[in-house]
Design a protein around this nucleic acid. Structure first.
Lengths: 151, 151
DNA sequence: TATTGTTATACTCTATAACTATA
DNA sequence: TATAGTTATAGAGTATAACAATA
């Protein structure tokens, strides 16, 4: 991770720092890298964890429903689900002829718990980096930036 | 773009919405998609624009310096720079035996100007989605989330 | 007709290792 | 020894089109 504070960045002029959208992207990328680093010990990536947590909160959810909530297209859900199933973290049972209900296995519940602790710890760290007076504005701002997007 | 507000999301429980890190990622992805959509008319992607704007603000910057500021590795800068050069938007001149100074061509300056207008317009739109009382907190929060990251 | 899960495919972005030529 | 630019390669994530089976 390089930032404007690097020695190598001295004397340079970075007009991108004036752009909120750029700061949003850099902050997101940094947090995502940090999350993936911390999750590596569990052999998971952020995508796996988001799906595990969603299944845990919604036992029996289908692949399509999960994909819509996570904004992952049906076609792209296939390898993610297959990987978690192969690892024995989730199981699928037919709900009708075409849909399958996804649930966590015991191993999946264990790993969901562990990964949730990691995710929550990072979230606390992220919030802790924000000056105390601004902390209560973090979630409303991020929600507004996201949910206000054209869809 | 799907969100929790979709009809298909009804009745679902999304625990990820409690996580600032997740909101950060979704907000960033949404903004990035929107930016790339708007830049498509210019035949550019967000990466191209960030480099064009950085070169415009720092004529003669080298590929490595730009990569450090943008957090793009040397190896990954090669195709980006090559594409912009092939399109006649930038030119490179040797500064010593190994480094080359990058500058915008006339066409590059024109496109940098146009793309900067697009980027600034999106930035205004983004800020406009945030409740007025919270707007002044947007940049400090994003900077804190980013620059507070371990490096 | 629309939806679910799937395959195939391609493109972008990112990561690592290794090479050359220069400093 | 370290750095700049490059090549090659692999892994994520994402996008579209198409298909079979089912609703």
């Amino acid at each position: 991770m390089s930032t404007i504070h690097d020695d190598q960045g001295k004397g340079m002029n970075d007009p991108l720092l004036e752009l909120s959208g750029y700061l949003l992207r850099r902050a997101s990328a940094a947090a995502l890298n940090e999350l993936n680093d911390r999750l590596a010990a569990l052999g998971l990536r952020h995508t796996d964890v988001s799906l595990l947590l969603l299944i845990r909160a919604n036992p029996g959810i289908t692949q399509s429903q999960a994909g819509r909530l996570l904004d992952i297209q049906r076609a792209n859900m296939v390898p993610v689900v297959a990987r978690l199933e192969k690892r024995g973290l989730i199981k699928r049972t037919p709900v009708d002829g075409r849909s399958r209900a996804i649930r966590l296995t015991a191993a999946g519940r264990m790993l969901a718990k562990k990964s949730f602790a990691v995710v929550q710890a990072l979230d606390q760290d992220l919030i802790g980096r924000v000056p105390a007076k601004l902390r209560q504005a973090v979630r409303p701002i991020l929600l507004a930036l996201w949910q206000g997007a054209a869809e």
